[in-house]
């Protein structure tokens, strides 16, 4: 079936109230039942549609469960090596500054192997959008401990629970990145209820819009589940997530330079550097 055909068929008899976003291709995904990747990818596609930017968008797929998301999104797509999506996105954005560039990454990719790329793309203030799926586990390789696995969480490689003495503590990505001047917008959301999905969509839209408007680096962290590797039903996974993840990783806005009254990240950074002559550009040739 070609893109758009089913829409046409529906429209011939009734008014369509729910269709596949144009920026999402009619292909079968490889996600497990109950996985939230599908919801988030749909939200990203809806936002791309609403902003009318599919034709000028370049997406970066990570290594992890969403590795083949290059087949799902209708915009041009690049598959990056593990953790390097922010560096690849930087290369694209610097080459094509008027394009919309987003990276879609999981917790192992973004916060473990790719932490250097994550932090440095953020602190450079790359005008890109990062969608970060935090489900506290390595999904594709079969459920190993992730940098965001909770204390005492049982995984394949923390079979007695994440031992804080040997494995240390999880990383709170939004809180960490909030300290960086290059960052314009950080929000942590979830997609476990219709209401939270609507909030998540708003956040993702804000993160893309920021890029369109040149506001700066924006990241949306989506606290998610992995029913398969958590070995739970989707419903139980959401319950566990609400009880454990959302208390450790509180939802909310962690930085929003516009809400603080600044036009962009650079302006906010300058205000923060008040009193430092060189940082404020005084005496600079």
């Amino acid at each position: 079936m070609k893109r758009g055909d089913e829409v046409a068929m529906t429209q011939s008899t009734e008014k369509a109230v729910f269709t596949r976003p144009h920026a999402l291709l009619p292909v079968v995904t490889n996600y497990c039942p109950g996985c939230t990747h599908g919801i988030v990818e749909r939200l990203v596609a809806e936002v791309i549609d609403e902003l009318g930017v599919e034709g000028k968008t370049v997406g970066i797929s990570p290594v992890g469960c969403s590795v083949t998301s290059y087949d799902f999104f209708g915009c041009d797509m690049i598959e990056a090596s593990h953790g390097r999506a922010p560096a690849v996105a930087t290369g694209v954005k610097r080459s094509l500054p008027d394009r919309i560039v987003f990276a879609y990454q999981g917790d192992g990719d973004l916060a473990s192997i790719g932490m250097a790329e994550t932090v440095h793309a953020a602190t450079r203030g790359e005008n890109i959008t990062i969608i970060f799926i935090n489900n506290a586990i390595y999904g594709m390789t079969g459920g190993q401990m992730a940098p965001t696995s909770l204390p005492h969480q049982v995984t394949q490689t923390s079979p007695y629970g994440r031992d804080l003495e040997t494995a240390g503590y999880p990383i709170r990505v939004c809180e960490l990145l909030a300290t960086l001047d290059g960052v314009a917008y950080l929000e942590r959301v979830s997609v476990d209820t219709p209401k939270s999905v609507r909030t998540a969509k708003k956040a993702i839209r804000h993160a893309f819009k920021n890029q369109v408007d040149g506001v700066g680096y924006s990241l949306v962290e989506v606290v998610s589940t992995c029913p398969t590797n958590w070995k739970m039903t989707p419903e139980d996974a959401f319950a566990w997530m609400r009880e454990n993840m959302l208390t450790y990783y509180p939802l909310g806005v962690y930085k929003d330079v516009q809400a603080e009254g600044f036009a962009n990240a650079a302006e906010a950074a300058r205000a923060r550097a008040e009193g430092c002559p060189i940082a404020c550009g005084e005496g600079v040739r």
């Binding site: 370049v58 970066i60 690049i78 990056a80 090596s81 390097r84 560096a87 690849v88 996105a89 930087t90 290369g91 694209v92 954005k93 610097r94 080459s95 094509l96 394009r99 250097a116 790329e117 932090v119 440095h120």
Partner: peptide, 26 residues
């Protein structure tokens, strides 16, 4: 043009990958 001092050689080569994917000489 762009001169970018990357955070590591690993990041630099992946920026090259991104720029090459975007179709520019890099």
């Amino acid at each position: 043009g762009t001169y970018l001092q990357a955070e590591s050689e690993i990041a630099a080569v992946n920026m090259l990958y991104g720029a090459a994917a975007a179709g520019v000489r890099a």
